[in-house]
Computed example of a mutant assay.
Amino acid sequence: MITVKLLKPYYMKVDKKIVRVVLAYQYFALLINDQIYQFIPTEEREIQVNRKTKAIENIHATFAFQKGKDIIYKSMYELIMYPNFLFQLHSIVEPYFTNINIKQMTNHERVIHELEQLNIKRRIDQALDTNNKKLFYELVQYLSQVN
């Protein structure tokens, strides 16, 4: 079982289009099989989130985590599968989002938004199927925040 133990920005870089959450050692940690793995900045060092669409821009980024001599690599794609990662990331970047409603989105942005909503709803269904109440409540809470 993998969960995000800690996700705090070392600092933030914000421009018109992107919010960059810059990470550093001891500001990002995963709990993997009851062992804490600390982020090490050997691969990617930041998470890039589009201020308008709220989508993660560097989806192909790879992050390294270390416990002693053991190093584990996790892609951004893997990390976004953990609802507590998305929940914590959203709470960090939410104040920087551009307020835009669905009517103002381009067709491309609208499709991405709808696909993200469908993905969350599918994950809610999976949580119900597996009787995972914690995951269910996290996803429902996240879904209510992004709508």
Results as ranks from 00 to 15, higher is better:
I40Q: 09
I40D: 09
P41F: 04
E43Q: 12
E44P: 01
R45L: 03
E46C: 07
E46R: 07
E46L: 04
V49N: 03
R51P: 07
R51K: 14
R51I: 10
T53R: 02
T53Q: 04
K54P: 00
A55P: 00
A55N: 12
A55R: 09
I56D: 06
I56S: 09
E57H: 08
E57M: 11
N58S: 05
N58D: 09
N58A: 01
N58V: 09
I59W: 12
H60E: 15
H60M: 11
A61K: 06
T62W: 05
T62A: 11
T62F: 08
F63P: 02
F65Q: 05
F65A: 05
F65W: 07
Q66G: 06
K67D: 13
K67C: 10
K67M: 13
K69I: 07
K69W: 03
K69Q: 13
D70Q: 11
D70L: 05
I71R: 11
I71L: 07
I72Q: 14
M76Q: 07
E78Q: 15
L79P: 03
I80W: 06
I80Y: 01
M81T: 10
M81C: 11
Y82N: 06
Y82H: 09
Y82G: 00
Y82C: 02
P83E: 09
N84M: 08
F85I: 05
L86M: 13
Q88M: 13
Q88P: 00
L89G: 01
H90Y: 15
S91D: 15
S91G: 00
I92W: 02
E94H: 12
E94L: 08
P95C: 06
P95V: 04
F97V: 02
T98M: 12
N99T: 12
I100V: 14
I102K: 11
K103D: 14
M105W: 04
M105R: 08
T106M: 03
T106Q: 02
N107L: 11
N107S: 12
N107F: 11
E109A: 08
E109Y: 02
H113M: 10
E114V: 05
L115W: 03
E116F: 06
E116N: 15
Q117S: 14
Q117T: 13
L118C: 07
I120G: 01
I120P: 03
K121E: 15
K121Y: 13
R122V: 11
R122N: 13
I124R: 04
D125C: 07
D125F: 10
Q126P: 01
T130H: 10
N131S: 12
N131I: 01
N132T: 04
L135T: 14
L135C: 08
L135S: 12
